[in-house]
Protein backbone atom coordinates (compact mmCIF):
# COMPACT_ATOMS: atom_id res chain seq x y z
CA UNK A 1 0.00 0.00 0.00
CA UNK A 2 2.90 2.35 0.68
CA UNK A 3 6.02 2.32 -1.42
CA UNK A 4 8.81 4.71 -0.50
CA UNK A 5 11.57 4.96 -3.08
CA UNK A 6 14.88 6.85 -2.96
CA UNK A 7 13.58 9.36 -0.47
CA UNK A 8 16.00 12.21 0.26
CA UNK A 9 15.26 14.86 2.85
CA UNK A 10 16.90 17.26 5.25
CA UNK A 11 16.92 20.77 6.61
CA UNK A 12 18.27 23.59 4.48
CA UNK A 13 21.46 22.33 2.85
CA UNK A 14 21.90 19.62 5.45
CA UNK A 15 20.72 16.32 4.07
CA UNK A 16 19.68 13.85 6.76
CA UNK A 17 18.28 10.84 4.93
CA UNK A 18 19.64 9.45 1.68
CA UNK A 19 17.84 7.13 -0.73
CA UNK A 20 15.58 5.58 1.85
CA UNK A 21 13.51 2.68 0.47
CA UNK A 22 10.85 0.64 2.18
CA UNK A 23 7.30 -0.57 1.68
CA UNK A 24 4.27 -1.41 3.76
CA UNK A 25 1.65 -3.98 2.73
CA UNK A 26 -1.99 -4.07 3.79
CA UNK A 27 -2.46 -5.25 7.35
CA UNK A 28 1.25 -5.14 8.08
CA UNK A 29 3.21 -3.59 10.92
CA UNK A 30 6.65 -2.47 9.88
CA UNK A 31 9.29 -1.11 12.22
CA UNK A 32 11.76 1.62 11.36
CA UNK A 33 14.62 1.17 13.75
CA UNK A 34 17.66 3.14 14.60
CA UNK A 35 19.37 5.10 17.30
CA UNK A 36 18.96 8.75 18.16
CA UNK A 37 19.78 11.01 15.21
CA UNK A 38 19.74 8.22 12.63
CA UNK A 39 17.06 9.94 10.57
CA UNK A 40 13.90 8.13 11.69
CA UNK A 41 11.87 11.21 12.55
CA UNK A 42 13.10 13.01 9.44
CA UNK A 43 11.77 10.07 7.42
CA UNK A 44 8.39 10.41 9.14
CA UNK A 45 8.31 14.15 8.61
CA UNK A 46 9.16 13.73 4.92
CA UNK A 47 6.43 11.13 4.38
CA UNK A 48 3.76 13.12 6.22
CA UNK A 49 4.57 16.40 4.46
CA UNK A 50 5.72 18.21 7.60
CA UNK A 51 9.04 18.54 5.78
CA UNK A 52 9.34 18.95 2.03
CA UNK A 53 11.44 16.07 0.67
CA UNK A 54 14.37 16.91 -1.62
CA UNK A 55 13.57 14.09 -4.00
CA UNK A 56 12.13 10.61 -4.17
CA UNK A 57 8.78 8.96 -4.39
CA UNK A 58 6.10 8.22 -1.80
CA UNK A 59 3.45 6.12 -3.51
CA UNK A 60 0.37 5.42 -1.44
CA UNK A 61 -2.24 3.15 -3.03
CA UNK A 62 -1.20 4.38 -6.46
CA UNK A 63 -1.23 8.04 -5.49
CA UNK A 64 2.03 10.00 -5.55
CA UNK A 65 2.33 11.97 -2.30
CA UNK A 66 5.93 13.13 -2.38
CA UNK A 67 6.02 16.92 -1.94
CA UNK A 68 2.28 17.20 -1.26
CA UNK A 69 1.00 19.33 1.64
CA UNK A 70 0.59 17.72 5.04
CA UNK A 71 -3.16 18.22 4.72
CA UNK A 72 -3.30 16.37 1.36
CA UNK A 73 -1.36 13.49 2.87
CA UNK A 74 -3.76 13.35 5.83
CA UNK A 75 -6.68 13.31 3.41
CA UNK A 76 -5.06 10.39 1.61
CA UNK A 77 -5.20 8.47 4.91
CA UNK A 78 -1.69 8.65 6.38
CA UNK A 79 -1.96 9.87 9.96
CA UNK A 80 0.83 10.13 12.46
CA UNK A 81 1.13 10.04 16.22
CA UNK A 82 4.02 12.49 16.39
CA UNK A 83 7.11 12.25 18.52
CA UNK A 84 6.44 13.91 21.86
CA UNK A 85 2.67 13.48 21.33
CA UNK A 86 2.03 17.18 20.54
CA UNK A 87 -1.29 17.31 22.35
CA UNK A 88 -3.26 20.46 23.09
CA UNK A 89 -2.45 20.37 26.76
CA UNK A 90 -4.85 23.04 27.95
CA UNK A 91 -7.80 21.51 26.14
CA UNK A 92 -9.86 18.62 27.40
CA UNK A 93 -9.28 15.06 26.28
CA UNK A 94 -12.57 15.21 24.39
CA UNK A 95 -11.57 18.41 22.58
CA UNK A 96 -8.24 16.84 21.62
CA UNK A 97 -9.98 13.81 20.19
CA UNK A 98 -12.60 15.92 18.45
CA UNK A 99 -9.86 17.91 16.70
CA UNK A 100 -8.54 14.62 15.33
CA UNK A 101 -11.63 14.44 13.11
CA UNK A 102 -10.30 16.70 10.38
CA UNK A 103 -12.43 15.45 7.49
CA UNK A 104 -16.20 15.46 6.99
CA UNK A 105 -16.20 11.68 6.94
CA UNK A 106 -14.34 11.51 10.24
CA UNK A 107 -16.68 14.04 11.83
CA UNK A 108 -19.72 12.03 10.76
CA UNK A 109 -18.30 8.93 12.38
CA UNK A 110 -16.98 10.73 15.46
CA UNK A 111 -19.24 9.03 18.02
CA UNK A 112 -18.56 5.62 16.54
CA UNK A 113 -14.80 6.28 16.48
CA UNK A 114 -14.86 7.49 20.08
CA UNK A 115 -16.50 4.25 21.20
CA UNK A 116 -13.90 2.33 19.20
CA UNK A 117 -11.07 4.20 20.97
CA UNK A 118 -12.60 3.85 24.43
CA UNK A 119 -12.79 0.10 23.85
CA UNK A 120 -9.01 0.03 23.46
CA UNK A 121 -8.26 2.71 26.05
CA UNK A 122 -11.02 2.56 28.69
CA UNK A 123 -9.09 5.01 30.86
CA UNK A 124 -9.70 7.80 28.39
CA UNK A 125 -13.47 7.56 28.76
CA UNK A 126 -13.15 8.43 32.45
CA UNK A 127 -10.99 11.41 31.59
CA UNK A 128 -12.87 13.05 28.73
CA UNK A 129 -13.47 16.36 30.51
CA UNK A 130 -10.00 16.56 32.07
CA UNK A 131 -7.44 18.79 30.38
CA UNK A 132 -4.88 16.73 28.48
CA UNK A 133 -1.90 18.31 30.24
CA UNK A 134 -2.99 16.88 33.59
CA UNK A 135 -2.83 13.27 32.40
CA UNK A 136 0.07 10.92 33.00
CA UNK A 137 2.55 10.37 30.18
CA UNK A 138 1.00 7.02 29.29
CA UNK A 139 -2.50 8.43 29.19
CA UNK A 140 -1.28 11.30 27.04
CA UNK A 141 0.20 8.81 24.60
CA UNK A 142 -3.17 7.05 24.51
CA UNK A 143 -4.87 10.37 23.71
CA UNK A 144 -2.36 10.93 20.91
CA UNK A 145 -3.02 7.47 19.44
CA UNK A 146 -6.79 7.89 19.81
CA UNK A 147 -6.63 11.35 18.22
CA UNK A 148 -4.95 9.79 15.18
CA UNK A 149 -7.46 6.90 15.01
CA UNK A 150 -10.38 9.34 15.06
CA UNK A 151 -9.10 10.71 11.74
CA UNK A 152 -9.82 7.25 10.21
CA UNK A 153 -6.30 6.40 9.03
CA UNK A 154 -5.46 3.76 6.46
CA UNK A 155 -1.85 3.94 7.56
CA UNK A 156 -0.91 4.88 11.10
CA UNK A 157 2.59 6.12 11.89
CA UNK A 158 3.70 5.90 15.50
CA UNK A 159 6.82 7.98 16.10
CA UNK A 160 8.70 6.86 19.22
CA UNK A 161 5.65 5.78 21.22
CA UNK A 162 7.85 4.31 23.94
CA UNK A 163 9.63 7.58 24.73
CA UNK A 164 9.55 8.19 28.46
CA UNK A 165 6.85 5.62 29.20
CA UNK A 166 6.67 2.69 31.61
CA UNK A 167 7.26 -0.71 29.92
CA UNK A 168 3.74 -2.01 30.62
CA UNK A 169 2.20 1.05 28.96
CA UNK A 170 4.48 0.67 25.97
CA UNK A 171 3.27 -2.94 25.68
CA UNK A 172 -0.33 -1.77 25.84
CA UNK A 173 0.21 0.75 23.05
CA UNK A 174 2.08 -1.76 20.90
CA UNK A 175 -0.66 -4.35 21.40
CA UNK A 176 -3.20 -1.81 20.15
CA UNK A 177 -0.97 -1.05 17.15
CA UNK A 178 -0.70 -4.74 16.35
CA UNK A 179 -4.46 -5.18 16.68
CA UNK A 180 -5.07 -2.24 14.33
CA UNK A 181 -3.06 -3.93 11.60
CA UNK A 182 -4.33 -7.45 12.08
CA UNK A 183 -8.03 -6.85 12.82
CA UNK A 184 -8.94 -3.35 11.67
CA UNK A 185 -7.22 -2.99 8.32
CA UNK A 186 -5.00 -0.13 9.44
CA UNK A 187 -1.39 -0.69 8.51
CA UNK A 188 1.18 0.58 10.96
CA UNK A 189 4.64 2.07 10.74
CA UNK A 190 6.35 1.85 14.08
CA UNK A 191 9.32 4.13 14.50
CA UNK A 192 11.33 2.99 17.49
CA UNK A 193 14.60 3.11 19.37
CA UNK A 194 13.48 0.18 21.50
CA UNK A 195 14.44 -2.44 18.91
CA UNK A 196 13.55 -5.41 21.08
CA UNK A 197 9.94 -4.38 21.67
CA UNK A 198 9.48 -3.10 18.13
CA UNK A 199 10.60 -6.38 16.53
CA UNK A 200 8.25 -8.35 18.75
CA UNK A 201 5.33 -6.34 17.36
CA UNK A 202 6.37 -5.81 13.75
CA UNK A 203 6.29 -8.14 10.74
CA UNK A 204 9.13 -6.41 8.94
CA UNK A 205 11.92 -4.15 10.09
CA UNK A 206 14.21 -1.59 8.48
CA UNK A 207 17.31 -0.41 10.27
CA UNK A 208 18.41 3.16 9.57
CA UNK A 209 21.93 4.31 10.33
CA UNK A 210 23.31 7.74 9.33
CA UNK A 211 20.32 8.35 7.07
CA UNK A 212 20.65 5.09 5.12
CA UNK A 213 18.63 1.89 5.36
CA UNK A 214 21.45 -0.52 6.19
CA UNK A 215 19.45 -3.63 6.91
CA UNK A 216 15.99 -4.94 6.28
CA UNK A 217 14.11 -8.16 6.71
CA UNK A 218 11.43 -9.93 8.65
CA UNK A 219 11.42 -9.46 12.39
CA UNK A 220 12.72 -12.97 12.95
CA UNK A 221 15.62 -12.39 10.55
CA UNK A 222 16.56 -9.14 12.21
CA UNK A 223 16.32 -10.59 15.69
CA UNK A 224 18.88 -13.20 14.68
CA UNK A 225 21.11 -10.81 12.76
CA UNK A 226 24.53 -10.45 14.33
CA UNK A 227 24.78 -6.70 13.69
CA UNK A 228 21.34 -6.02 15.19
CA UNK A 229 22.13 -8.20 18.17
CA UNK A 230 25.39 -6.42 18.83
CA UNK A 231 24.36 -2.85 18.11
CA UNK A 232 20.78 -2.75 19.33
CA UNK A 233 19.87 -5.73 21.43
CA UNK A 234 23.00 -5.80 23.52
CA UNK A 235 23.36 -9.56 23.19
Amino acid sequence: MLEVKNLNAGYGHLQIIRDVNFSVNDGEVIAILGSNGAGKTTTVRAITGMLKPMSGSVNFNGQELCGKSSRAILDAGIIQVPEGRQLFTEMTVYENLELGAFSDAAREKLDESLKFCYKYFPKLEERTSQSAGTLSGGEQQMVAVARALIGLPKLLILDEPSLGLAPNIVDEILTVAHDMAKNNGISVILVEQDVNKALKTADMGYVIENGHVVLSGTSAELQNNEHVKRAYLGI
Binding site: S70, P82, L99
Partner: peptide, 20 residues
Protein backbone atom coordinates in the same frame (compact mmCIF):
# COMPACT_ATOMS: atom_id res chain seq x y z
CA UNK B 1 -12.57 28.67 18.03
CA UNK B 2 -11.18 25.28 18.99
CA UNK B 3 -8.80 25.38 16.04
CA UNK B 4 -7.60 28.84 17.15
CA UNK B 5 -6.88 27.49 20.62
CA UNK B 6 -5.22 24.41 19.14
CA UNK B 7 -2.84 26.50 17.02
CA UNK B 8 -1.99 28.72 19.98
CA UNK B 9 -1.28 25.75 22.27
CA UNK B 10 0.63 23.54 19.87
CA UNK B 11 1.31 24.57 16.26
CA UNK B 12 2.92 21.22 15.44
CA UNK B 13 -0.03 19.31 16.88
CA UNK B 14 -2.31 21.54 14.85
CA UNK B 15 -0.47 20.59 11.67
CA UNK B 16 -0.68 16.91 12.62
CA UNK B 17 -4.49 17.12 12.74
CA UNK B 18 -4.66 19.00 9.44
CA UNK B 19 -5.47 22.50 10.65
CA UNK B 20 -4.70 25.13 8.02
Amino acid sequence: GKKIRAVSQNPIGAQVVGID
